[in-house]
Amino acid sequence: SKYKVVVPGTGEHPLQYNYTFWYSRRIPSRPASSQNYEQNIKQFGTVASVEQFWRVYSHLVRPGDLSGYSDFHLFKEGIKPMWEDEANKNGGKWIIRLRKGLASRFWENIILAMMGEQFMVGEEICGVVVSIRFQEDILSIWNKTASDQVTTARIRDTLRRVLNLPPNTIMEYKTHTDSLKDNSSF
């Protein structure tokens, strides 16, 4: 397959990592499986600089304006937003459930924090997801090593700071192994 190397343009501000945007939409009546998940998820852009990021982002629908079962993902280039990916298989994610109306703002803040390297956990971050559902929306951030409690605690603390979460927000950590076992994430 053709592989196009994405690099920052002249005079642009490079990012520490390249990131790829993905979009998926699921028909809720169908059972979730990794096979149809992979069929339904599409990547639509990789960015290497701050300026490239804004060019893609400014053309996107705000996640809070999406309907039904839709997810936006922003992952480091080369990491598929799937539990089975080499970078994710020993990992996990912090899950934040949001009442309707908050997803767009929190999604923007979490991706800016990730791209700006605000988490200070080395190579640990894999990507972030915003999941639009009927009753609530869900934000999650994936990291490589679920067993690394220092890292997961640091990610949680950074999230609280950069998102300025409402005090009653519940944050839950789930390993991808557990997600695979119960075959349900959200």
Binding site: G11, H13, V50, W54, N109, L112, M115, G116, E117, V162
Partner: peptide, 21 residues
Amino acid sequence: GTRIIYDRKFLMECRNSPVAK
């Protein structure tokens, strides 16, 4: 190694500048 760190304020300013500085 050195990491490229940007705060939210800087990233938002880049959004509003039509030409990269």
